[in-house]
Amino acid sequence: MRTAELKNQTTGMPAPPKKTKQHITVLLVLLLVMASGWQIGFSLEELMSGLPNMWDLIVQLIPPNWGYFSQITVPILETIRMAVVGTTIGGLLAAPLSMLAARNVIHTSWVTIPCRFILNLIRTLPELLLAAIFVAIFGIGPIPGIFALALFSLGIIAKLFYESIESIDPGPMEAMTAVGANKIKWIVFGVVPQVTSTFVSFFLYAFEINVRAAAVLGLVGAGGIGLYYEQTLGFFEYDKTASLIVYTLAVVLIIDYVSTVAREKLT
């Protein structure tokens, strides 16, 4: 009787699931982290000796140099201008490219696949890197910055846009096919009306990102406020650096707010 009960107890239970996979994953991540630390020579000592410096820096950042604000208004405006123009060029390029990359608009894969490939390629390169290359081409100034932002926003907008084009209602497109429209008319009347507001929304979203990106392009000589970060830090004028940070953050927050409100109105 007792043995039967015991046996029943052992057979009634399923075996607990194996946790080997979880343990291996944790181990792997820890190994990767340790290998990374070793690769770049990470040391806690360095961190400990750096922390007081960090504190000193923060102390010197406060308070910002209020008189400096009027001097940096011009480069701040240039930053915004770069973002406006860059996003616009990027958006204008993105609209046709997204159409070419959307499988429900262009049914031939030898068009969509190369388009997607180019878009993915663009998206692998961050804006500052693009800016460094354009500075090598056009020389120092806002022009290379604008080109970098244009290409960067092309990557963002086109990716989001062709994905949303692919999810639109096929009804109006079929209707256009039925009335015998050519491809251009078919796109203008069957596709465009359905995606205009999403496009504007993505455009504004890219603009928000570009304002932030434009603020640092000056570090490689591509115009805008970024140049002044390096200057003020180089001359140890931390109070001016603080002014730059405060000004940039204020502008970014205001633009984010306006753009978010506009995007909400759209949907």
């Binding site: 107890q9 009634g12 239970m13 399923p14 607990p16 699931p17």
Partner: peptide
């Protein structure tokens, strides 16, 4: 926990 599950007749659902 296993005993408690046995009491409510659900040991096989443990995992």
């Amino acid at each position: 926990a296993i005993q408690a599950l046995k009491r409510v007749n659900m040991p096989e659902k443990a995992y």
